[in-house]
Design a protein around this nucleic acid. Structure first.
Length: 781
DNA sequence: CACCCTCGAGTTCA
DNA sequence: CTCGAGGGTG
């Protein structure tokens, strides 16, 4: 039977290998033919890797033209002239973890024998590989990689970039030298490029790599003068960094300059006037290489080009010759690939959730996928229109990424991988939480809402959780789990809260009976005990078995004599005690926090602050007319209507009454009454400040408080009206935008001065610094 | 009528 | 942190 088994396994392997080969070749065609791949790089690599594995197990499967033996790409069919590279352009093998890197290093060091190995690390630019051929110091051709043997002649476009020397500087250039490098589109200019493309009615680029590739592929023929200017403009924005020498006239160069290391090659290339990266390092120890990888993994966005990994090269050139190369890649170098930022995964379902405002939001439930370093299984789809616009069907393979490296986002389906079993998403007509028909609240609204605000369990739970959140009353313990426990009918008791009206009436005794069904974090289904019943947790009570009070002080023998045995005692858990204490503490919080906690449409922290400062009490807000409400800065007719509507509902009034009865003041002590002008003044009067990143000495909230306490406006987003941007470590897009707008950017220390002494103390006028100011400092403020 | 801003939602990690 | 949606303001 053993033989049958082997034959069987070989047949399976052969079938899989054939299948893999076909898919890889098809993807290569798509990839190199159209600049857009139907699958992500990570998937492509996975296919090639799997094939390599199979070939390892069954060497007879490996053929000369297997994709593992040939370099990616095929001869181009576009209109550019073919160029035969003097020396084949190889690709690099990949490692996907520090362990694999370690294993590679072990092999290298073993093969190196007694020689001590030094490693050069550099960023792997996600761009377009280019081969520059110089003869006696003159650029003869610039060509794309193509299939590694024959590429496309893009010399004219490369010269049009303006940053690649047509003639090498220095003297003593070899008869022939090929310089390899990568052309890329600087990420900082990418958004602007797409905006121009859109304005010109041209197609948008999916990413900077595509932009580089697309720009390099442009042809001048048949273009209008206007288009030629645009083309030239795009080309001038491209950059190139060189990272190696292909056709390698060792003796010729060495006779001129003795060179023994790759890092010295870079020095040589620089003296020739070629642009080299400033990000390379040389290390003796592979552990230091791992450190470099980790450093840049954390700061991938901080470089002018996209990075798709780290290239690790053996620095010693004599070892390059000794280690040699396979038919597709050198053995003296490897590429560490970071976890991909875009991956494919399966869209298992589209489910609708009901938020605290009743809005029905469809979200994608996906097969768990590792993207940008964390596992993702859900992503919001916003509303039906977005689902339709993205064109995804349930069952599709979809492209998933993290917008801003944080928020999971479904980009769209991989249409090529459909098999006909996919089905379209249909927005439910009824609320999935309470069954009430969903409806648009206004004519033309895309969002559907559950109108059952009072008793829809999803909405009640959402509102209770919102009350506890940081932006509202900031009640510890009262998070997602506690909110669910308090509002869901827990077995066997009724929920302690039917609506949020009873929140401040809760006692320890109300909390004790609560039982929560434990749900599987993977499936969302209730977990079951061995006997099939739901697994329950009691978050607010702790049961102990101990001797009763009368046994205190007795020894074991005396207890036995008295016939006293242990009894079950129920204690409130730490969480229960904490929650009650926190609720008590919350009653003293500022009025605006209570306004936020009431979940009134369009009343968030900003509007709530404005209303509270103006009216001073909830009673005054309630008594105000529409016009009086709208007189408040930042409040218009819609918010005024929303407030009036809210107070008109009996069950809303009940919330106020019961919270008041429980001791919530709903007023700012000492407030002079409605309409009283806010105590104006303060050193930041009329100054808008945005805080981003972590500012030493301030919490996120604390920074905002400090700005407002000084009379300034704490804006949440950067615009040209922003006067100062206080940026600390970890600042992201806001800082980038501030720089783009030329705004005044200050650090934590300057921020501290700003909020205490005002802008003048920073010795600068309010507002953006003048672009070129050699004029005297006559502040107009 | 453009902007610019706030709101609300989802998600993950330290 | 980012997006869409929609309100507010110049």
């Amino acid at each position: 039977m053993a033989e049958t088994g082997t034959t069987q396994r070989f047949d399976d392997a052969k079938r899989e290998a054939d299948d893999l080969t076909a898919r890889i070749l098809a993807l290569r065609d798509a990839y190199y033919g159209t600049d857009a791949s139907p699958v992500s790089d990570g998937d492509y690599d996975a296919l090639v890797l799997r094939l390599a594995d199979l070939e390892q197990d069954f060497p007879e499967l490996r053929s000369q033209d297997s994709p593992t033996q040939t370099v990616g790409g095929r001869a181009e069919t576009t209109l550019f002239d073919p160029v035969v590279h003097a020396e084949r352009m190889l690709s690099l093998d990949n490692v996907f973890s520090e362990e694999e890197l370690e294993a590679w290093a072990v092999k290298v060091e073993r093969d190196a024998g007694s020689a001590s190995v030094r490693y050069l690390t550099e960023l792997k630019i996600d761009g377009l590989a280019i081969n520059l051929r110089y003869e006696r110091g003159l650029l003869v051709t610039a060509a794309t990689r193509g299939d590694g043997v024959v590429g496309e002649d893009v010399t004219q476009n490369v010269l049009a970039m303006g940053s690649i020397p047509e003639r090498l500087s220095g003297t003593g250039h070899p008869e022939l030298v090929e310089v390899r490098g990568e052309i890329f589109f600087p990420v900082a200019l990418f958004d602007e490029l797409n905006a121009r493309q859109a304005a010109a009615g041209e197609r948008l680029f999916a990413n900077p790599r595509n932009a580089a590739s697309g720009s390099m592929r442009q042809k001048t023929e048949g273009k209008s003068a206007e288009k030629l200017i645009l083309m030239q403009d795009r080309l001038s924005r491209l950059r190139m960094l060189v990272h190696g020498i292909g056709a390698w006239p060792v003796r010729e160069i060495e006779s001129a300059t003795p060179i023994t290391a790759q890092s010295e090659v870079y020095g040589l290339l620089a003296t020739w006037g070629l642009p080299i990266s400033t990000h390379f390092e040389v290390y003796d120890d592979i552990d230091d290489v791992a450190g470099y990888i980790r450093r840049y993994g954390a700061a991938r966005g901080g470089v002018e080009h996209q990075i798709d990994g780290i290239v690790v090269k053996v620095d010693n050139l004599d070892l390059h010759l000794e280690l040699g190369a396979t038919s597709r890649a050198p053995r003296w170098a490897t590429a560490f690939k970071y976890p991909p930022e875009e991956v494919n995964t399966r869209l298992l379902d589209i489910v609708v959730s009901i938020g605290r405002t009743g809005r029905a939001t469809p979200f994608a439930v996906m097969e768990k996928a590792l993207v940008a370093g964390s596992e993702v299984r859900q992503a919001t789809l916003h509303n039906q229109d977005v689902v339709k616009a993205k064109g995804v069907l349930i069952g599709d393979t979809v492209v998933l990424r993290k917008a801003g490296d944080v928020i999971p986002e479904v980009l769209g389906p991989v249409v090529e991988l459909r098999d006909g079993t996919e089905r379209a998403f249909v927005m439910p007509t009824d609320c999935p939480a309470c069954g009430t028909p969903l409806r648009a609240m206004k004519e033309g609204d895309i969002d559907l809402r559950c109108p059952n605000a009072r008793s829809c369990p999803a909405q009640v739970r959402g509102r209770v959780e919102h009350i506890g959140s940081r932006g509202a009353l900031d009640i510890e313990v009262l998070g997602e789990v506690a909110a669910a426990a308090l509002t869901q009918p827990s077995t066997p008791a009724n929920p302690p809260l039917v609506t949020e009206a009873g929140l401040f009436e809760l006692t320890i005794d109300d909390l004790l009976p609560i039982e929560v069904v434990v749900r599987d974090s993977e499936t969302g289904l209730p977990k079951e005990e061995d006997d099939g019943s739901d697994k329950l947790r009691t978050p607010f009570r702790r049961v102990a078995s101990e001797y009763p009070k009368e046994a205190e002080g007795l020894t074991a023998g005396e207890r036995r004599a008295a016939g006293i045995s242990k009894v079950r005692v129920v204690y409130p858990s730490a969480a229960a005690v904490k929650l009650i204490a926190e609720l008590e503490r919350a009653k003293t919080k500022d009025l605006w926090r209570f306004l936020v906690a009431l979940s009134i449409r369009h009343v968030g922290p900003v509007a709530a602050r404005a209303l509270s400062a103006y009216f001073g009490s909830l009673a005054a807000i309630r008594a105000a007319t529409r016009d009086e409400l709208a007189a408040v800065d930042g409040v218009g007719g819609i918010i005024a209507d929303s407030l009036i509507d809210w107070f008109a509902a009996d069950w809303h009034v009940e919330i106020i009454d019961r919270w008041s009865a429980a001791g919530v003041p709903f007023a700012t002590p000492g407030h002079p009454g409605p309409g009283a002008a806010m105590s104006a003044g303060g050193v930041l009067e009329g100054v808008t400040v945005v805080a981003t990143g972590s500012l030493e000495g301030f919490s996120r909230e604390g920074a905002l408080e400090a700005i407002m306490a000084a009379g300034g406006k704490a804006a949440s987003s950067v615009s040209k009206k922003t006067d100062f941007v206080a940026a600390g470590p970890g600042a992201g897009s806001k800082l980038t935008k501030a720089e783009a707008l030329g705004l005044r950017i200050i650090d934590a220390a300057q921020f501290a001065v700003l909020v205490t002494e005002g802008p003048a103390a920073l010795g600068d006028a309010v507002g953006p610094a003048a672009p070129s100011d050699d004029k005297p400092a006559d502040s107009t403020v």
